[in-house]
């Protein structure tokens, strides 16, 4: 589904990604771990199309199409979803209205009719129950005054609404207490199918107890330096990232 080949990217003069290769197939969950500053969030931002970064080399192929030149919304229309580490507050736009706009713009781009209002309400009800979101919450301004946990839960609610092909969860576990973590992970697991794929970006192993990855990659200094199965995450938790750093320097 997603194939990243020799991806180099920089912001200004600073090269952050220095040749990433990654293959993600439908039905798989990949975890990308690594110390602070390794380039994890940069990688997710670049897949989603953030124009602050410049791709200097390599390609990002989604379903046999190079998407590296597409605008963020075009990638979204093709099924790329990024759960933000720091979701943005938008005062004056309710969660419901934001979702309606997002869904109908996506449908329009894909040549579909707008979703009928009653169907929209039904889907919103279903998905908000999945994430244990109070109905009143949906009429509040998007992310405004939400707690850290509410923001993350709202991100996964949006993911549930948009049903992406490829979901990237950027540090979704940060700022979550154990109950919220369980709800979010449960939501993600229910959305998982053999037709979509998930990339979990995380600093800690904790989230991977709930969302169990098929593959774990360690990103260090702009490169994937180690790949393995779920046990690699446990090993990292035990030994810390210094182990990887030392191995690299040796």
């Amino acid at each position: 589904m997603l194939s990243i080949k020799n991806l180099h990217a920089s912001i200004g003069d600073k090269e952050i990604l220095k040749g990433i290769d990654l293959e993600v197939k439908a039905g798989e969950i990949h975890a990308i771990m690594g110390p602070n500053g390794a380039g994890k969030s940069t990688l997710s931002a670049i897949i989603a199309g953030n124009e602050n970064y410049e791709v200097t080399e390599g390609e990002i192929i989604l379903d046999n199409e190079d998407i590296s030149e597409l605008a963020p919304e075009e990638r979204a229309h093709k099924g790329v979803f990024l759960s933000f580490q720091y979701p943005v507050e938008i005062p004056g736009v309710s969660v419901t209205n934001f979702m309606k706009t997002a869904i109908n713009e996506t449908r329009k781009a894909n040549g579909q009719e707008e979703m009928p209002a009653n169907e929209m309400l039904k889907v919103i009800r279903e998905k908000s129950e999945l994430l244990e979101i109070d109905r009143k919450f949906l009429s509040r301004s998007l992310n405004e005054g939400f707690s850290g946990g509410e923001k993350k839960r709202n991100e996964i609610f949006q993911m549930a609404m948009l049903e992406p092909k490829l979901a990237i969860l950027d540090e979704t576990d940060s700022g979550l207490d154990i109950d919220a973590l369980r709800i979010v992970a449960n939501g993600v697991n229910k959305l998982k199918s053999d037709k979509n794929a998930i990339i979990v970006i995380t600093h800690y192993q904790r989230l991977l107890d709930y969302i169990v990855p098929d593959f774990v990659h360690v990103l260090h200094n702009g490169k994937i330096v180690k790949s393995g199965d779920a046990s690699l995450a446990l090993e990292l938790e035990e030994k810390g990232y210094d182990w990887i750093k030392q191995e690299q320097e040796a």
Binding site: A48, E73, A76, L82, E105, L162
Partner: peptide
């Protein structure tokens, strides 16, 4: 960027 990421054109 956040809104575009959710499919809303610029």
């Amino acid at each position: 960027f956040y809104m575009q990421q959710r499919g809303i054109p610029k």
